[in-house]
Amino acid sequence: MTGPKSIISTLQRHGALWPLVALGLIWLVIIIVNPGFFAFTIQDGRVFGGVIDIFNRGAPVALIAIGMSLVIATGGIDLSVGAVMAIAGAVAANLIVGTDLPAPLIILAGLGAGLAAGLLNGTLVAGFGIQPIVATLILLVAGRGVAQLLNDGQIITFQNEAFAFVGVGTLLGLPMPVWLVLFVLAAMLLITRRTALGLFVEAVGANASASHYAGVPVRAIKLTVYAIAGLCAALAGLVATADIQGADANNVGLWIELDAILAVVIGGTSLMGGRYSLVLAVVGALIIQSLNTAVVLSGIPPKFNLVIKSAVIVAVLMLQSPVAQAQLASLRRRFTA
């Protein structure tokens, strides 16, 4: 069977139906409050349009959600991503201001800082057996302090066209952050699905003890996912820093860990670990960003922002809950019977 019905059932089997429906509904609301928002225009060789804006703005959360998905799939969590963003940004900004290093080396240094942070988290979790929420809480608190120390408490601003390209550049008509999300998503899909890493991550998350008995290197897998999460967070931090050509250690990535966790959960990955979907985590990030945009466009006073945002997210999560799914299924049966 082909046709709309089979597409819907395929989406449903992969848990993609409700996130996509939610995204569609939010976009519908945006079109109603601002019909011109999604219009595409091409200007100076760059495509402008609402969808691209949302993708571009949602890039940091999407990047972090990709790394976070893997961590959550192993049954862990990484609260330190926002602080790691700040560290990577601070490292990059200080190198730009203080040295003559070329941009690629500066980017590598920023990513290196993120990798180091991720390995620290991973060592605490896998090596010392500290609960992930506690282990990463350490860096959540200390990491931003380190970044502030690097910046001497200031916002370090810089002029560096090559580095700024990461945040504001355009490649083949699309903003660089959009490309970075697509690239990281493709790379991680390749790394996890074309090797056995994805299988091991899911096995560790679903049953760490049985995986250990089967010879899966449980600790190494955990270390790896935290390292990947650190890299993703660092990249997000570089994008955010390049975006405003300044490293704002106090504010960059503040609370972003919660948005990223939410994106992963909206994408249907259980916080208990096990099965995960990187693509749906990115969809989750787009949902959150679309919601932010919709709230701004709607002209509702800012004090209602958080209330509206949380109400919509609660609705999405409830629709995905097993209880609601069972109810819907029985409704559908009655309807078709």
């Binding site: 916002i155 975006d243 405003i244 704002d248 504010n251 960059v252 002209g299 006073p301 800012p302």
Partner: peptide, 10 residues
Amino acid sequence: MTQTADFTRA
């Protein structure tokens, strides 16, 4: 139009 931007550049 008015909206909060949390006092931050980003």
